[in-house]
């Protein structure tokens, strides 16, 4: 059947594509979409021209929920709401790379170089209809509404906890999270609710830090007040991620762990002398995979957690044509607010 999709063809240029969508697996109508910073980088052209040329045209958006239209396997019912998973498992037999990480419990397909990721090196969810394998959808639990669109971000937080080996049984008494943006907020919230520990958050914006009412907050320029810790999570990203990471290195106890979650634009200098002196462990984590989404959906069923996620939903814009789609990208690319203006698509 024919269906429309919106694809970016050059920075600040979306075009309507009409594609013939097959229905071999689960036919899904994307419902709520949220724009990620990575989408905005493509929209603004903040990647090298060579990279952009290789990727365009491409449908953006990897944070989405959808509604099942028809499932050939019968596992999902028509009208069932689902979360769409963006990581696409490699189609190789696990013998393409020297070391296959696809089935490594800590890394999984998320770190497999042969995997694809929607709106990065694979079409994203800006589509009227999609045929999607049941591997890449999960049911939205009853009682969870449009906020399910934040599942992807929550799953990234869950992935960080999993990758860092942090559980309720072994996590230290307090955890520090650098970053007062949406990723910092969600990672702090995931740490709070999945580990049940005291959370310290370090940020710059008084207005944003005021929203972290489940944590103790510290200003980045008053870092001396922050107690030392054994686990620090950097969720700042951008050019400031280096400052955050170095502050964390200074504050970690010997043997402590620094988990890097923010995406830096450029290479950042780190105080490796301190890393050596204190025997610190630095690890990176990004994106997520199916098991992290399952954990995210469990968290969304906790009322208090869900209420705090709902605060991130600034507005819902009904997108019934490409003009509205542009408007949301413009709004999100200029927004400094803690939260997102999400789309409900009806095009």
């Amino acid at each position: 059947m024919f269906a429309k999709s919106y694809k970016i063809t050059e920075p600040k240029r979306f075009e309507i594509f009409v594609e013939d969508v097959r229905n071999d697996a689960v036919l899904v109508r994307p419902e709520y979409l949220a724009v990620c910073k990575a989408d905005i980088r493509y929209y603004l052209g903040n990647r090298s021209a060579r990279v952009l040329k290789r990727k365009f045209p491409m449908s953006l958006i990897h944070e989405a929920t959808g509604i099942v239209i028809r499932d050939r396997s019968g596992k999902f019912k028509p009208d069932q709401r689902v979360v769409l998973l963006p990581c696409r498992r490699a189609e190789c037999e696990g013998n393409k790379c020297d070391i296959c990480v696809r089935d490594d419990e800590c890394l999984l397909d998320n770190y497999c170089p042969e995997s694809h990721f929607c709106s990065s090196n694979y079409d994203g969810f800006s589509k009227e209809l999609m045929d999607i394998s049941d591997e890449y959808i999960l049911p939205v639990p009853d009682g969870v509404g449009a906020e399910a669109v934040f599942s992807e971000l929550i799953s990234v937080g869950c992935c960080a906890m999993r990758r860092a080996g942090l559980t309720k049984d072994n996590a230290p008494e307090s955890i520090a999270v650098w970053g007062d943006g949406i990723m910092g907020y969600i990672i702090a919230l995931v740490a709070k609710f999945s580990l049940d520990r005291h959370i310290n958050v370090i940020g710059l914006s008084e207005e944003k830090l005021a929203m972290f009412d489940f944590a103790d907050v510290y200003y980045s320029n008053d870092i001396d007040l922050l107690p030392r810790m054994s686990v620090a999570i950097e969720a700042v990203g951008g050019n400031a991620s280096g400052i955050a990471a170095n502050q964390a290195i200074d504050k970690l106890y010997s043997g402590g762990r620094l988990v890097l979650c923010g995406v830096a634009n450029d290479n950042i200098p780190l105080n490796t002398r301190m890393v050596l002196e204190h025997g610190l462990t630095i690890m990176g984590t990004t994106r997520s995979t199916r098991c992290d989404f399952e954990k995210a959906l469990e968290l969304l069923q906790i009322g208090e957690f869900r209420d705090r996620i709902l605060k991130l939903l600034l507005s819902t814009v009904e997108v019934d044509d490409i003009k509205k789609y542009y408007e949301v990208f413009e709004k999100e690319s200029k927004s400094t607010a803690l939260g997102k203006n999400i789309m409900k698509i009806t095009f």
């Binding site: 024919f2 013939d20 036919l27 209809l129």
Partner: peptide, 18 residues
Amino acid sequence: LYGKPVIIHTLEAFEINE
């Protein structure tokens, strides 16, 4: 039309409409 009769493309639009 790309592997299917035109009418089938049309009927598919109604088939999937809830």
